[in-house]
Amino acid sequence: MNLEQISQDRIVKESKLRAFIRQNMSTVSIFGILLAISIFFSIMTNSFLTVNNSLNIIVQVAPNIIVAVVMTFVITTGGIDLSVGSVLALASALTAVLLSNGFGSLATLIVVLIAGIAVGFINGFAIAQFKIPPLIVTLASMIYIRGLALLITGGYSIAILSEHSISQLGQGRVLGVPIAVVFAAIFVALGILLLRSTKYGNYVTGIGINEEAIRRTGVNTVKVKIMTYMLSGGAAALAGMIIATRLGSGSSNIGNMFELDIIAAVVLGGTALFGGAGTVVGSVIGVALIGVIKNGLTLMHVSPYIIQITEGLVLLIAVILNVRVFGKKK
């Protein structure tokens, strides 16, 4: 190979790299911010950049990743799901209640997943069939589902004994890797595959761009949207069981502000806020960024109130970047 050919190959590779960066500017930018913040916390605290703390962050964000992957699909359709935090709480509470009343682990797993999927079906049906704005439908669900979780627990935490095999969801390991992390990895892989390489993923993106045009091609957009919200409810239910079994108790009080963390992560990662473009990888990076910020500020002994303010500002910045900066490039 002569020098001219080497030079041409290098130019082609550089062109492809520039094109990739342009097409994924939001994801690349957020990843850069994640690295910068990680370096900052590594300098400011002695315990941030340790194996134990890194594993702790991964385990903590695994349920968020599971829900964020599916929320990417929801937002890509032009929708939103504010009920995921309440479904998380309902799943946690329902898991503890069923186990304490003699249900087996498998039966509990099935019932809780069905409950989450059912909530998603109700949301999706109301949104797709009756054309009610997703914000209104899922806001209502957020309220009544949280109320249902409070009703079945009386507002108290209920212990989940480690003798139940379902406890392995939050505490078990496969070849040394936490099962929760394995589930998160599976969701990420499936999410990328579905969004990029399947008709369903194309329909989801198409609905976000122009639902009427997709409908006129013969696609049952109602079915696609209902399925998407059902997946969202099921993912939130699974995440709720993982958190409950990891903590060893079910509570109706968990998951407060959870939905905002998830939405912030997805939007921050580069998924178009008003639909039409989604990135699962970006959502994962967004979840990691929020998890790192929380963890780092906690290690710095920052007040929880300041952490909550920071979360709100992160959400605001995410929306501004998504609409004003990255949105122009989509």
Rank of each mutant, 00 (worst) to 15 (best):
Y200L: 13
Q129F: 15
A126Q: 06
V174K: 00
S197Y: 15
I179R: 00
G206A: 11
L161P: 04
S141G: 13
I158H: 09
V137H: 09
V111Y: 06
Y200V: 15
N123D: 07
N101E: 02
F187I: 01
G120I: 09
A126M: 13
A118T: 12
T108I: 04
L193Y: 15
L194K: 04
G191Q: 04
Y203D: 11
A189D: 01
M230V: 05
N220Y: 09
G233A: 12
A244V: 02
Y144L: 14
L190F: 14
I166W: 06
L169W: 03
I152A: 08
M142Q: 13
T217R: 15
L150N: 06
G154I: 10
G176P: 01
I214L: 14
I160C: 03
S167T: 08
Q168G: 01
I143L: 15
I242W: 00
A115F: 01
G201S: 12
Y203R: 02
M241H: 06
I114Y: 11
R196H: 12
T205E: 11
S141Q: 06
K225E: 14
A159W: 10
G102H: 02
F187Q: 08
P133A: 05
F121W: 12
M227T: 14
A236V: 10
T217C: 11
Y229M: 13
I127F: 07
